[in-house]
Structures are given as structure tokens and as C-alpha cells.
């Protein structure tokens, strides 16, 4: 997947090393292999690959990893822009 990249410096992924307990769930669930655990703490290896699916943040036991989750889908985003159509779907 390394050859697929979209825009840089946009992802809402944030990581607080102080809060990390090193459980490694973020590294397990990330479909873009962004995290690795080294010396008992998670490390963000490749922040720009984040697609904001939210799996890491949902499973992080201490909220050390946070992200605003959502779907990166133009059709869906248009629907959220239109009044009265929130929560409609595209897939």
C-alpha cells in the first residue's frame, strides 16, 4: 500500500506517548501498519498513511491514540453537506 498516497498533513490522528501503556492493540488493528510497539510504548511510524478509520482510537484503553473517524468518500461527504440528510450512506 506504500504506493497509494492521498493528501498529506490532513489526518486528525494524534498520539500521546505519556498515556500509552504499550498494549499494542493499535499496532494490531491498523490496516495501514502505522504503529509499532518498541520498548513498551507505541510509535507512530507513518502518520501520512492514516485513513482515519478509527480502529486504533476505539481500541486504545487509555485514549493515548485519538482520531476523528469517518469514511473518506466524496459521495458521503456531499450528503453531510446537504441540509437534513445527515447519516445517509454510500456503502
Amino acid at each position: 500500500m506504500k504506493r497509494y498516497r492521498h493528501l498529506e498533513n490532513v489526518a486528525t490522528l494524534a498520539y500521546d506517548r505519556e498515556k500509552c501503556v504499550g498494549c499494542g492493540l493499535c499496532a494490531t488493528v491498523c490496516p495501514h501498519r502505522i504503529f509499532a510497539v518498541r520498548d513498551g510504548k507505541a510509535e507512530v511510524l507513518d502518520r501520512e498513511a492514516c485513513m482515519e478509520c478509527g480502529a486504533c482510537a476505539l481500541n486504545c484503553p487509555t485514549a493515548a491514540v485519538t482520531v476523528t473517524p469517518g469514511v473518506g468518500c466524496a459521495q458521503y461527504i456531499i450528503q453531510t453537506w446537504l441540509p437534513g440528510k445527515r447519516g445517509t450512506s454510500c456503502c
Binding site: L7, V71, Q75, I77, C91
Partner: peptide
């Protein structure tokens, strides 16, 4: 092409919204 973002497994909502 822009709409194809919904079919890919790597675009983030922040990125797609910025591009749109």
C-alpha cells in the same frame, strides 16, 4: 475520479474533504 475515493481503502475523510 474524485468520487472513486469512496471505493479506495486509503483515503481519509479529512483528505477527501480538503480536496473537494
Amino acid at each position: 475520479g474524485l468520487n472513486f475515493t469512496g471505493s479506495t481503502p486509503y483515503t481519509s475523510p479529512s483528505g477527501v474533504e480538503r480536496e473537494m
